[in-house]
């Protein structure tokens, strides 16, 4: 959309939004619109220019300010939002796809999708269906709707819970008592941010939680907790006792590694291979990481990890040396 056309659609959006929320602040409007306060102020000045013939003072939309709060006057003819354009409907559909699954047969994402279709601008329906198949989120779908519902409820009601969790560091299923603080989606995976028994912060991947139970106790969440603090590029936080490791990748894999990892952690060698320095909280995590790459990755240090990794490889090789699997 051209810039001045965008201005018009913004105005047609702002007038009903402010009319529907009398006393909304400039800051709130800017947050919803995803723009600066200055841009909102500019739009407000433009709203004042909208009038109808014969352009007498009360033929113009006006607004009153109370500090940061805005009130519109004489806007009743324009106080209803316009139907959704194709871009708006597609954008909203993408966001709905990212919503967590819901159990018990009620999925707001599904019912909202139906409503979006009825709210489309005239003639946009056909394109919306076609483009819904062309532009999409391809994150793997998760099947933990009911479990997710219990977690969500526990977060909302501040209920202490027990979770049966497959720990990636011990590689065992165990039961833990936690106080759930928030849920976070990162690149298609959901995480539970919780407080452990000793007041430590835990980040548990929801698909590794096998079951959720209640302890019957409620808790007071820490006042300074804000889930937004967990919006990061990587969810992996190495602990204090994490060990520095070095892994060499073959020249074939080097371009891929250079694309994925922070360049400050990489060193290119003359033979075209690349060495990655990283921190590992547990050798188990590191070994799983290495196994993904087969012979293209080689653990250089620390020495005791190298020794343990060789042991793991030998154990696995023993399993696969038999031509047939044990009958399972």
């Amino acid at each position: 959309m051209a810039t001045n056309t965008k201005e018009v659609s913004d105005l047609l959006l702002l007038i009903p939004f402010i009319a529907g929320h009398p006393g909304v602040t400039v800051g709130e409007v800017a947050r919803h619109l995803g723009c600066t306060r200055a841009r909102v102020e500019g739009h407000l000045n433009r709203i004042l220019m909208c009038g109808v013939p014969p352009y007498l003072p009360d033929n113009y939309i006006g607004y009153a300010r109370e500090g940061d709060r805005i009130f519109l006057t004489l806007a009743s003819h324009m106080s209803h939002p316009v139907r959704l354009t194709l871009e708006e409907a597609l954008g909203l559909r993408l966001l709905l796809q990212a919503l967590p699954p819901a159990g018990k047969g009620r999925s707001p994402a599904a019912t909202l999708l139906k409503k979006i279709e009825s709210a489309l601008a005239a003639g946009a329906g056909g394109e919306f269906h076609k483009m819904s198949r062309a532009i999409a989120l391809a994150e793997p779908k998760r099947f933990f709707a009911e479990k997710f519902d219990s977690l969500r409820e526990a977060v909302r009601e501040h209920r202490e819970i027990t979770v049966e969790y497959y720990s990636p560091s011990s590689e065992r299923l165990g039961t833990h008592t936690v106080r759930p603080l928030g849920l976070l989606d990162h690149e298609g995976d959901w995480y539970l941010v919780a407080e452990g028994k000793r007041g430590d912060r835990l980040i548990l991947r929801v698909d590794r939680i096998k079951s959720v139970g209640r302890t019957g106790r409620d808790f007071e969440p820490p006042g300074d907790f804000d889930i937004a603090d967990y919006r990061v590029r990587e969810v992996y936080f190495p602990g204090k006792d994490a060990v520095s490791c070095r892994v060499r990748f073959s020249p074939e894999l080097a371009p891929w590694v250079e694309e994925r990892f922070d360049r400050r952690r990489l060193r290119r060698r003359r033979d075209g291979s690349v060495v990655l320095s990283l921190k590992a909280s547990s050798p188990q995590w590191l070994f799983r990481f290495l196994l993904k790459f087969g012979g293209d990755a080689r653990l250089l240090s620390p020495k005791d990890f190298v020794r343990d990794f060789r042991k793991t490889l030998r154990r696995l090789l023993e399993i696969y040396s038999a031509p047939q699997a044990k009958i399972r």
Partner: peptide, 30 residues
Amino acid sequence: LDGARSALMKLRASEPAAFGKGEESLLLDT
């Protein structure tokens, strides 16, 4: 993303009473 934002504002503007103050501790970072 801009489209999604204005769609969300339109829905809020259309039915402001449906949106309570309640917000969840749920963070989407898609």
